[in-house]
Structure formats: structure tokens, C-alpha cells
Nucleic acid binder design. Structure first.
Length: 251
DNA sequence: AGCCTTTGACCAGCG
DNA sequence: TCGCTGGTCAAAGGC
């Protein structure tokens, strides 16, 4: 990412942090009212915030290990199969070159990066990550209920691979391990689109639900409901922030 | 024709 | 050294 994108990432981070604080206020104010739905929505928005932040921290910093593993799913995969080998293996440079001339079956030893993705019901499984992959193998791993799938970047001069392992206890969750780095340029482009789409979608969806449930009541002509909500200004501020969302999505 | 997925085989790494 | 495991290859078939 360039300097400009770094600055814009800072802006997004700041705004999301602000939203989190506002959501905490919202929760605090509504708790005594026993507004279960509101508390649920606020909790969902906070969860969305955490996810968005993990996306930001994980994808914005090239080559960094993704933090989402710790945040989204701190427990190790239920699979008894070992995760990708220890970092010392990384010292061995991959035998796979751009044209894949070598027929070596050495394991890909490029730095792995593990993400956890969750598919929505009815969504394509495993969920797409915005990049184009070609499946080159599938293997049933010892002790694992679901087979592990192996993908390569469709760009032939790119040495990126990924492994997708369905999480046994959560069939809609997938552990995705990326190896290598894209030399074809599609990653940077798609990472931004993916990141921003994720931030926009998650926060926007939560905000939409919130407004559907409460805004019509808040704006009734006689303001009769307004007195029920001591923190209208908080709502207004939050909704204004939500409506501002697209202005940050131009990385 | 070209690209993709499937699937069995091959082989390197590790205990 | 040997056997097991898992990552990759490559042929075959489908779209």
C-alpha cells in the first residue's frame, strides 16, 4: 500500500474506533430500558467493528500475518491434522517458479498466512475471496471430516497457492491458508475492493437493521417515542457516520 | 480448443 | 532407514 492508502486506512480506523465508542454508549443507555433488540444490534455492530478492524489490520499490511485467526477463531481447528509447518521451513526457497518448470514435489515453503472465513447459508462454499484460483488437488486429511482443497492462482507466472480446510465443528467456516505472494497484481486490487466491501457491508447492514427498527419511531410527528430514547443524539451521530461510509471507500 | 475439476499416484518431510 | 502423512503432479473427463 502506498503512503496515501496508509493515510486513508488511518482514517477508516479512526472512524471505526469512533463508532465502537458510540456503540458502547448506545449499549449503556439502552440497557436499563431492556431493549433487547437494540442491545443485540449494538452487539452485532461491535462485532462487525472487530471483524472490520481485523480485516484492516490483516490485509492492509502486506505480508503481515492476519490477525483474524486470533480474533475470529482463537481455538485451533478441530482437525487433528497439523497446521502448515513451522516457520523454519520457510528458509527453503520454493522450488516453484513463475513457469512452474520444476517438477519437484517439495512442499510449498513460502510464508503462510491463515485466515478464517465464514460462509453465509446459501452462499457458495467455500466463499470466494475475490481472487481467481484454479483447484489442483484435494486430499482427505487424517482425522479431518472434510477434505482439504488446494488452489493455485490462475495467473501462471504467479506462485501463490491456497489451501482450504472446512472446519469440522462449524461446517460454514473455512480455514484458508495462503502461500506465496501474488506477482500478477490481482491481490492488491482485490484486497482493497474486498476490504472496503467488507467494511461497508458489515457496518452498513447492521446500521440498516438498526434504522429499520428504530428510526421510524424516532421521527414520528408528535415525537411521542422520542422521550423513550434518551440518546437520540447518539443515534443521529451514529447514523450520520453510517451515511458517511461511502466517502472512505475510494482507496 | 482451452480451461477447469477430479482423482490416483508420486515424493519430500518428519518422527 | 522406514513408514506415515500431506503437498503436488498430471492424466482423464467435463463444460
Amino acid at each position: 500500500m502506498g503512503e496515501n492508502n496508509f493515510w486513508e486506512r488511518e482514517v477508516v480506523t479512526t472512524e471505526l474506533t469512533k463508532r465502537k465508542e458510540l456503540m458502547f454508549q448506545l449499549q449503556k443507555h439502552f440497557y436499563p430500558m431492556k431493549q433487547d433488540v437494540c442491545r443485540y444490534l449494538a452487539a452485532e455492530i461491535l462485532s462487525s467493528y472487530d471483524k472490520a478492524m481485523s480485516l484492516l489490520n490483516g490485509t492492509a499490511l502486506s505480508g503481515m500475518m492476519c490477525k483474524s485467526k486470533e480474533i475470529i477463531n482463537p481455538a485451533p481447528s478441530s482437525s487433528t491434522a497439523p497446521q502448515l509447518e513451522s516457520p523454519q521451513l520457510l528458509a527453503d526457497s520454493s522450488t516453484k517458479s513463475c513457469d512452474r518448470p520444476s517438477k519437484s514435489r517439495k512442499r510449498n515453503t513460502l510464508a503462510p498466512r491463515t485466515d478464517y472465513v465464514e460462509a453465509r447459508p446459501g452462499e457458495e462454499v467455500p466463499p470466494k475471496d475475490g481472487l481467481n484460483w484454479r483447484k489442483y488437488g484435494q486430499k482427505l486429511i487424517l482425522g479431518a471430516k472434510y477434505p482439504r482443497e488446494y488452489f493455485q492462482c490462475v495467473c501462471r507466472h504467479c506462485d501463490t497457492t491456497k489451501m482450504v480446510q472446512q472446519v469440522e465443528i462449524e461446517p460454514l467456516s473455512f480455514e484458508v491458508t495462503y502461500g506465496g505472494s501474488h506477482s500478477c497484481g490481482q491481490e492488491n486490487k482485490n484486497q482493497n475492493e474486498e476490504l472496503l466491501a467488507a467494511v461497508g457491508t458489515q457496518v452498513g447492514a447492521a446500521a440498516g437493521k438498526l434504522s429499520e427498527c428504530y428510526i421510524p419511531e424516532m421521527v414520528t410527528p408528535n415525537n411521542s417515542y422520542k422521550t423513550k430514547y434518551p440518546c437520540d443524539s447518539t443515534y443521529d451521530t451514529i447514523l450520520q457516520l453510517f451515511s458517511d461510509q461511502p466517502s472512505y471507500i475510494h482507496l
